[in-house]
Design a protein around this nucleic acid. Sequence first.
RNA 1: GGGGCGUUAGCUCAGAGGUAGAGCAUUCGGCUUUUAACCGACUGGUCGUAGGUUCGAUCCCUACACGCCCCA
Length: 556
Amino acid sequence: MKNRRPTSAGAARFVPTCSTRVESRICAPAWKPVTLRPSSTEDWTPSSKRASSRDCRRVTDDRDDNKLIAERRKKLDALREQGNAFPNDVHRNALADELHATYGGHEAEHLVEEDVEVAVAGRMLVKRVMGKASFIKLQDRSGQIQVRVERDRLPEGTYAGFKRWDVGDILMAGGSLFKTQTGELTVMADEIRLVTKSLRPLPEKWHGLSDQEIRYRQRYVDLIMNESSREIFLKRSAIVQYMRAFLDSQDFLEVETPMMQVTPGGAIARPFSTHHNALDMQLYLRIAPELNLKRLVVGGFERVYEINRNFRNEGVSTQHNPEFTMMEAYRAYADYEDWMNSTEAMLRGMASAVNGDTLVNYQGEEYDFGKPFKRMTVEEVILHFNPDLDAAKLRDRGYLVGVCEQLGIPVKDGYGEGKLQIEIFEKTGEDNLREPTFVTQYPTEVSPLSRENDDDPFVTDRFELFIAGREIANGFSELNDPEEQAARFRAQAANRDAGDDEAMAFDHDYIRALEYGMPPTAGIGIGIDRLVMLLTDSPSIRDVLLFPHMRPEVFD
RNA sequence: GGGGCGUUAGCUCAGAGGUAGAGCAUUCGGCUUUUAACCGACUGGUCGUAGGUUCGAUCCCUACACGCCCCA
């Protein structure tokens, strides 16, 4: 494996730090159930301001001649005639799920006696008109609530207007709670407003939206229609929150380091380049934050971490997105074994917190995060999956070249024994590492930033964590000998001169920083996107990215 | 970069070398406790794009675009 922090791919940057109700502005730990306070800070102001002149602008768009949209535009035109078609004086005092939680268990008669007045708002996803009365369902960020709309309970003319509203429109309804004959908690509306007109029809109510391309390109439609998709991104947020809380509780400092770098470093990967006009210079988007984070350890921030985007100019696949999210953490006075232990503890706690179980089901397989993770060296993995190989010759270049040829692995002149081992490991081992497994003792040759093992300088004090055949984390004791690091950079530079455009550049300032002295330190990188895939049973990285990279859509 | 599959109404999907179909949605009518509400009537299409073969192509062929999957 190349010396990158998790090869994690893809990621979405949308990482809300607070999953509690926005209104309350109170963040709860992700792994605790979020409690919703009934009738909290959202008050409902039933007044509606009358239209100002600016609202009478007629905005028409004749680009789309779709009948369904044209019909809705006409309805919007009528709304503009009547006043402000896009009011912003709408307030609610209840969320759907909070009402179900609080009143769902109440007896129907009891509920009537209580006379609970609520104001709800959301997108109308169901509309059933039965003459002079109707049932609708509104969806807010918490869930759905049914509303009964009766002509004779509303001001004159309101019901006639309501009948012209469309599924997809955003409404506000005020009234008291009751239960229908089948026991469904429902709001009996004595006020109802069309708050925002929707011009585009939603997908069909039963099959929903299944077209993958539209789900990715128009994520907003996917989020409206597919609860499973909403759940993935809620869980993604909970995962990141758990990780932050885990690190914060151990006194780690969260930092942000540059995305734009003069010398991209910290990983072996192809960068994106860009140009700074005022300075007239080429800049690169970072491929990893590693070197900057270790500069901070030199500076005395002994425990730091960053959760942010990396960019790698490589292929796009179910496992790779050009920009992806990585957590990197560095801890002074610790070694790679400490990081294996805390990584294991963190993932165990995370699985319980996020999924309620240490058993993780992924694509038909089950992995128990509750059991101790396996630990094997690179050479042990190679021998385990290639039992015919001669253990005594695993560091014999000629022998390894022969093995590679047998396996159909192209061998380049510059490859040493370590690189050849890793090629064999990747070809025959990685996919088969299903149960959570720490693979240790990566060859020094492919680990230019890792500390050599004291007993065996052929390898470094480094590990990668594999789950379901995929690299989830990469960590090591950091190389803090500036002269050794300079020699490693020179070796990389030689590779670069030999035509390897992924090889690391010599970073003079990083060497200078190490020359001031970096305490013994160990670091880790965890690919957030792949972790989210694992914990949400998602087969493609695009499923866990809100806006995955796509070729541009053609609008004609 | 290579290979396979796909692209038909707003959505979910059928379809066959001879002027294009269903369900839902829309529109109109009916209906005051529905649950994919129901009943009746209507409407809706450059069949991804561009060429080619053919008397005739949405269907066959080629290229391209976009997507999904696999491989490098």
